[in-house]
């Protein structure tokens, strides 16, 4: 496993380099002068020139690229002119809310999706299966901001149980933290949960027809042991893949949901930085998201081997 891990991590480097190049090029090809966006229409030519100089915009593009890459290698993603702080610090500040939201949304999704998907597969064709799957279809189709807005209307405006928007860090107390996060987490969790439930159902349906499930039943095992021990573990690889992808998507920032609930997360950081043309922040954040994707997929790959012993990375 150690050798495999090392190989995988080394092979990630070229991927990240390509991401970095594309990231850099796209951002620098965006039309518009960042200096004039930042300073506004009242700025004098002199001020603009000064800012351009400060931002390094007068240097050739390849020089800027290499400066950026060298910075990254030293753990420096640049400086946010607008927030007046290092980009790494800005990302770090916004990562907390996003991670909290992602983990909570994913817990809600998995907690409901897997048992429901399993139940639907076990009672294939029943009214229960059909209604679960209709709900799952709805969950996939309804935009999470719409669900979010309805939750706000219901629980914040109508009943006044939860705050309509905003964010309190974990340090303010777990209850307070969850009070602010629960609605956005539900609105994100519904969609991810619907995806996971559908995958769980179809993967379970396939496994439940396998001969070893009949063997397990012939042993006299209880239905829930057959389902959760013998079938689910075999069905779990595609489910894990979907969970990994949905986790990575949420870490990349749920832009709309974060905006609706006014959560200072990665999604909001990107939107604000794009509006302000805060180049270095955009570049750094996009690179961080790409790295998170790659890293989460690596973890998923490693988990495959734990779930299914036939997946042996060292021999291949």
């Amino acid at each position: 496993m150690g050798g495999y891990l090392l190989k995988r991590i080394v092979s990630l480097l070229p991927v990240l380099l390509v991401v970095a190049i594309v990231d850099f090029i796209i951002i620098h090809l965006t039309p518009g002068d960042p200096a004039s966006v930042m300073l506004g229409s009242q700025a004098t030519e002199e001020e603009l020139a000064k800012l351009r100089e400060q931002l390094g915009l007068t240097l050739p593009i390849y020089t800027r690229f290499f400066q950026w890459i060298i910075g990254i290698l030293q753990g420096d993603l640049g400086w946010s002119i607008f927030m007046d702080m290092p980009v790494t610090e800005a990302i770090w500040e916004h990562l907390g809310p996003t991670l909290s939201l992602t983990i909570l949304a994913e817990i809600i999704a998995i907690l409901f999706a897997i048992p429901l998907g399993v139940m639907a597969a076990n009672r294939r064709g029943s009214w229960m299966d059909q209604s679960f799957m209709t709900f799952a279809m709805l969950g996939i189709s309804l935009p999470s901001f719409w669900i979010g807005l309805n939750l706000i209307l219901l629980f914040a405006v109508q009943f006044n149980w939860l705050p309509a928007a905003g964010y309190q860090p974990l340090s303010s107390g777990i209850f307070n933290h969850l009070k602010y996060l629960i609605m956005p987490a539900i609105s994100l969790g519904i969609m991810q949960g619907a995806l996971i439930a559908r995958m769980t159902r179809s993967s379970m349906l396939e496994v439940l027809n396998e001969n070893y499930i009949r063997t397990a039943e012939a042993k006299g095992l209880k239905m829930w042991i057959v389902t959760y021990k013998h079938a689910l573990r075999n069905a779990f690889i595609p489910i894990l893949t979907v969970i990994g992808l949905s986790f990575a998507t949420l870490v990349g920032g749920a832009v709309v949901t974060e905006t609706v609930f006014n959560i200072p997360g990665i999604g909001k950081l990107i939107v604000n930085s794009v509006l302000r043309r805060d180049y270095e922040v955009i570049q750094g954040t996009v690179l961080m998201i790409a790295a998170a994707y790659v890293f989460i997929n690596l973890i998923v790959d490693i988990l495959y081997a734990y779930i299914d012993p036939r997946v042996r990375y060292d021999k291949s």
């Binding site: 001969n211 009949r214 012939a218 006299g220 095992l221 075999n234 036939r310």
Partner: peptide, 28 residues
Amino acid sequence: SMEEMQEIRGNQISMIFQDPMSSLNPVY
């Protein structure tokens, strides 16, 4: 009942299946 069957299966009546390749659970 299903509970009575589960008590009999594998305990008083056992079954060996045709295909040993697919009749054992690959992950245990």
